[in-house]
Amino acid sequence: MTGTLGRRPLRRAFVIILNSGISGLDPVRARSVMGANRFFLMSAAVCLPWVVAIAVAHPPQTLVPALTHLAMVCGWVVCVDLNRRRHYVVASVIGLAMPIIQFAYLSSVFSTEAGFPLPLLTVGALAFVMFPPLQWRVAATITAIAALVLVRMYIAADFEVPDVEVSDGWLTGASVGNVIVVVMIVSVLALFNNHYFVRERRRNDELLAEAQVAARIDALTEVYNRRGITPVLSEALRSGEYALALADLDRFKRINDRLGHGAGDVVLSNVARTLVDAVGSRGSVARWGGEEFLVVLPGMSLSAAVAVMEDARRAMEYEYGDDAFLEPVTISVGVAHARQHAGKEETLRLADAKLYEAKESGRNRVLGASVATPALD
């Protein structure tokens, strides 16, 4: 338990260092800075043991190469601080230029047989991680420089013979070590890119799901909007007889005038909730426009649909009567019943006509009718 507690501050400190300089950045730039910081710290950790390995290869002749390698390691630490200070381009250019110079120098000291040109193969991948897409020209330039240096190492005669005498075993060990370094860098880059690919894909899926919900749900009342209720309505038409009810708040303008539009929005939201509770699993509620709601009641006869909406009307009258609000809230409802495959436009027109009739006959009431079935010859 103590060990776990001890590791957490170290892990937090490590994460803080990795995320140095990303606050306030757009996601693309932040990803590049985080990738650069990871490369700097990982490379510093991997290359630090090489300082000792180079120093003991053939002292004192290899002390200078060891010191320059140590300087590169220290330079990467400085690059993290440069990112923290928001000198992103400078940090990335220096962070990639140092290994190009250093590994070219080590190849001249120990020859290409020691494998020091191999890390330059990763410069291109690193450059396009550390620079955002808008700075692709900088990344391409550094990649081209690394490629030219690498080609020169293998074709120039002065890289074929080492400047210092080292054992064949040391050369083999150095070559294997450089292969391991390249594999580690490539693997970490792949893990880093995969991590962000998965995270961004998950976030995109979440945003898509939110957008799909927003496209179908009315933001104020949290019931279906017209787009959202359309497939429900289409399914009701195909499944059998159905009923449509149009419910409209009575004298809603007076509520807005007396209580304000903010209070009017609250009333609309509460009315929608009451409608949903009253209808329950028997149908679906949508905000049809303004203070008007559409209720789709699949598989329901006219009498059953009128009874459902009468329950909703009474619930509204009970919940939002004179004692609940400065203005009583009631609804008028028009119900239209239709047979299977009856046109929704005709059914909606009938529901709207019955709603108008309910308004004209005193409001706060439910009136219904069935769509006339065409007579057969």
Rank of each mutant, 00 (worst) to 15 (best):
M1D: 10
L5V: 11
G6F: 15
R7D: 06
R8S: 06
I16L: 09
G21A: 01
S32H: 03
S43Q: 02
A45L: 12
W50I: 00
V51H: 04
V51N: 11
A53R: 09
I54Y: 02
I54P: 02
I54V: 08
P60R: 14
Q61C: 09
T62Q: 10
P65L: 04
L67T: 12
M72I: 11
W76D: 12
V80M: 11
D81A: 13
R86N: 07
V89A: 11
I100K: 13
A104M: 15
Y105R: 15
S111E: 13
F116Q: 13
P117R: 13
T122A: 15
V129Y: 04
P132L: 09
A139H: 10
A146V: 08
A147M: 11
V149A: 08
L150S: 09
V151I: 06
R152G: 10
A157G: 03
D158Q: 06
E160L: 10
V161T: 11
E165L: 04
L171V: 08
G177M: 06
V186I: 02
V186G: 03
V188C: 09
L189T: 04
L191P: 00
H195P: 02
F197H: 08
R201T: 14
R202A: 12
R202I: 09
R203S: 05
D205F: 05
E206S: 06
L207K: 04
L207W: 05
Q212T: 12
Q212S: 11
Q212H: 14
Q212K: 12
I217S: 14
V223S: 14
N225A: 09
G228P: 06
I229T: 04
V232H: 13
A236V: 07
A236L: 12
A236P: 12
R238T: 15
E241N: 14
A243Q: 10
R251D: 12
F252A: 08
K253C: 09
L259C: 13
V271D: 10
V271W: 07
L275S: 14
G283F: 07
G283K: 05
S284L: 02
W288P: 01
E292L: 04
M300P: 00
V308W: 04
M309P: 00
A312R: 01
M316A: 00
E319M: 08
D323M: 03
E327C: 02
T330Q: 02
I331Q: 02
G334F: 00
V335S: 01
Q340Y: 02
E346G: 03
A351M: 07
D352T: 02
E357P: 03
K359I: 05
K359H: 09
L367F: 08
L367S: 10
V371Y: 05
V371H: 06
